[in-house]
């Protein structure tokens, strides 16, 4: 039989998002994601190794050259990385943090991003998220884990009316359907 070993790595298949015609929502496919966990003392060295500021306040993100580090917990960062540079992350950290007192876990396929743009987006999010999206309470640049209906979500405010939402892959159809239904209450 044919030797299948050398078949080319197939394309990534993300969970389906039915076309709803709502131009405010865009699935953001691909990209690499890591969860980085470490103690206070390792923040500096890790930041140097990765070339990104990790000492941002809790629930804030730092962004450098299309790399993002979101501090979701005092000791937890969600790293959003270009897929092409993903392979270097682990070696960079391993070279610097030789005591191995950290955890870097590839979760590129665990979750998917959705970009939400539009003046009604804060209201739409408030259908299933109990946070206050007033700019004073949830300023631009804030990112946090929270819930959207019965799904866990990471929500990052990139602009007053632009939010980046990450949910676990199996929740994507559920979240997408709800966004679509609620979106109808706020015509584009």
């Amino acid at each position: 039989m044919a030797n299948l070993v050398h078949m080319v790595a197939p394309a990534r298949r993300v969970p389906p998002c039915a076309d709803t015609g709502d131009r405010r929502y865009t699935p953001v496919n691909g990209g690499a994601r890591f969860l980085l966990r470490l103690r206070e003392a390792a923040i500096g060295p890790a930041a140097e190794a990765l070339g990104i500021d990790l000492a941002v306040p809790l629930n804030r993100a730092s962004v450098v050259n299309s790399r993002g580090a979101m501090r979701l917990s005092p000791d937890e960062w969600l790293l959003l990385w270009p897929e092409t540079e993903a392979a270097s992350v682990a070696p960079l950290l391993a070279a610097r943090l030789t005591d191995r007192r950290y955890s870097l876990t590839d979760i590129s396929h665990r979750q998917t991003g959705l970009m939400l743009n539009g003046a009604a987006v804060p209201d739409i999010l408030n259908s299933g998220c109990a946070l206050d999206f007033d700019l004073a309470a949830f300023p631009v640049g804030m990112v946090t884990r929270t819930n959207f209906f019965k799904a866990e979500a990471v929500l990052w405010r990139q602009d007053e009316f632009s939010f980046y939402l990450e949910v676990w892959r199996s929740f994507v159809p559920y979240v997408w359907s709800l966004l679509s239904i609620v979106g109808r209450e706020y015509p584009e």
Partner: peptide, 18 residues
């Protein structure tokens, strides 16, 4: 609210579901 029918709870599907 919206929690009825297929949206009553999330229906989680694996990558191989299809």
């Amino acid at each position: 609210g919206y929690a009825r029918g297929e949206l009553f709870e999330p229906e989680r599907r694996t990558a191989i579901h299809g």
